[in-house]
Amino acid sequence: MKLYKSLIYREMKLSRAYYGFCILFFALLITTVLVGLILPNVDEGVAPGEARLGFTLVSLVIPVLGALFVTRDGGNYKKDVNSGWARAVAAYPVTSKQRALAELLMRLISSLVFMVLGSVVTIVINANFGVNILLPYVSVWMLSGAVGLLIDAGLGVIVMLTRDKKQLKKYIVIANVAMIALLGTVAKYIPSFDESIATKKLLERIVDTLYSGWFFLICAAILCAVSALFLFVYARSYERREA
C-alpha cells in the first residue's frame, strides 16, 4: 500500500499543471451549463417532462467532456521519458504491474474526485427544477472515463509497437486517420433530429435508457473491462526491456 501511495503521489505531483487546467476547464464547463439551463427557465418555468429531457441531455455534456479529460495522460509519459525516469525506474524495486496499477488508480481517483465536484450540477438542477439526474450523470461519467482510458491504452499499444520516434509519429498519424474514418462512419448512422414527434419519442427513449439501472450496470462493466485492458497494456508497455 505504501508503494502505491508513493507512486500515486509522484504521478499527482507531476500532473499538477494538467489538473490545474482540468479544474479551470471544468469550472468553466459547469458554469456555462448551469447558466445556460437556469437563466432561460427560472422565470418562465418548464414542464416536468420537458425539464427531464432537456436538462438531462444538456447537463450530460459535463460528464462526457469532464471524464474524458481527467482520465487521460496529462503528459507524464513524455516527462518520464525526457527526465530519464522511464529508464531508471527499471533499477528500482517496483514491478511493471505495480506501476501500471498505480497509474490506473491515480486516474480513477482523480476521476472520482472530479465526478464528485461536478455532481454539484445535479444538486442545483434537483433543487431548482426537481429533476434528479444523478444516476445518468454517474453512468455517463463512467462510460466517458472508459473511453479516455481506452484511447490511452490504444496509444500504449502504439508505443509498444514502435522502435523509434519517427515510427511513433507515423503510427499516431495512422491512428488519427483511422479514428476520423470510424467517427465519420458512425456519424452516418446517427439520425437527424428535428421537431417531429418521432424525434421527441426517440430522445425520450434515449433518456429513459440513461435513467435505467441496467444502463448503469453496463457502464460500470465497461469501465471495469477497459480498466483491466488498460492495466494489461500498460504493464506490458512498462515491462519492455531494451533490445
Binding site: 509522484r10 507531476l14 529508464r87 531508471a88
Partner: peptide
Amino acid sequence: IAVVFDEMPFHDSL
C-alpha cells in the same frame, strides 16, 4: 541495491 546514473533521472519539478 542502489544505482547512481550518469544523468539525474528525477524530474525537474520535484
